[in-house]
Design a protein around this nucleic acid. Structure first.
Lengths: 156, 156
DNA sequence: TATTGTTATACTCTATAACTATA
DNA sequence: TATAGTTATAGAGTATAACAATA
């Protein structure tokens, strides 16, 4: 079998392009990479940034609640919260009624860091979605959110 | 600090929802998981499915070309191609002019497997995008593809 | 018994770097 | 010297399972 002709024309992925999931993955990986670069100067990673944002928006939530919000396991949250606490961006506080759980709060330093990070992320998004009009960005966000919303419905 | 009140209202992620990347990630992880489930009966994983599809569409392409098409490193392709070859779904063939590279081809068995897998993936997509009209699915695909297209342009 | 947080462990995916054989 | 494929290794990211403290 020493006789194959090399493939000449440019490589295509037309078949895969027909699938929404394929386009979704390509775009996601691209944006993920630039997002990591954008957050670099803050010392945050994507998941610590997300955690910080949710903690800021929902003061005194527990780690279990954060796990559910992030769609990850409780064990994964420990690492994220450790990292944020060690950087003095959040605090673990004891709760009145239940001594098993912690109430997570942003520190002032954490709020400042979050604000800075959000600016960098907004900049990153403007870059990544530069080819889309403001209306198209809204449409994309809406369509993706509607796909995501099916999850809670189809909880079997 | 034993005095924090627990967070009462449902946990929200409104701030993060404003970012396209966040919605993208949520939708991607959701679809990824169901995609793995959909492919399970075929024995294929997402990346071997994608590889098989691209090889079928571009007969006799090399592993390096496949790596570029999949946006991964050459070393990663070896594992994928090994897996497909061991399952007798593709063959590595020697090329005329260059004895360093392989020309990858789908076997008849590989074409059959690919067809079956594509049906399963189409079914999976119908399920995941059930809340979107046909037109909205096209819009989503188009917007994602346009985000992805920036990559080749912004090659610095 | 069930739940919160924790730890240890393992698995998947991918990148990096060093190697070989060809060119 | 450069390129195709290979191998070994390491690093994220996450899941699973078992555990201690508390409910």
């Amino acid at each position: 079998m020493d006789t194959a002709e090399p493939h000449k024309t440019p490589i295509t992925d037309e078949t895969l392009r027909q699938f929404g999931g394929y386009n979704l993955k390509r775009a996601y990986l691209l944006i993920r990479q630039d997002m990591m670069r954008a957050l670099e100067p803050t010392g945050l990673r994507i998941m610590t940034f997300s955690s910080l944002s949710i903690i800021s928006e929902n003061p005194n939530l527990t780690q279990s609640q954060l796990a559910k919000a992030l769609n990850i396991e409780r064990s994964g949250v420990v690492v994220l919260v450790d990292e944020l606490e060690n950087a003095d961006l959040i605090s673990r506080n004891r709760v009145k009624g239940d001594r098993r759980s912690y109430a997570l709060q942003c520190t002032p330093k954490g709020e400042g860091k979050l604000a800075k990070a959000q600016d960098l992320v907004a900049e990153h998004e403007n870059k990544m979605f530069a080819d889309l009009t403001s209306q198209e960005r809204d449409t994309l966000r809406d369509l993706l959110a509607r796909v995501d919303k099916r999850q809670s419905k189809t909880e079997d």
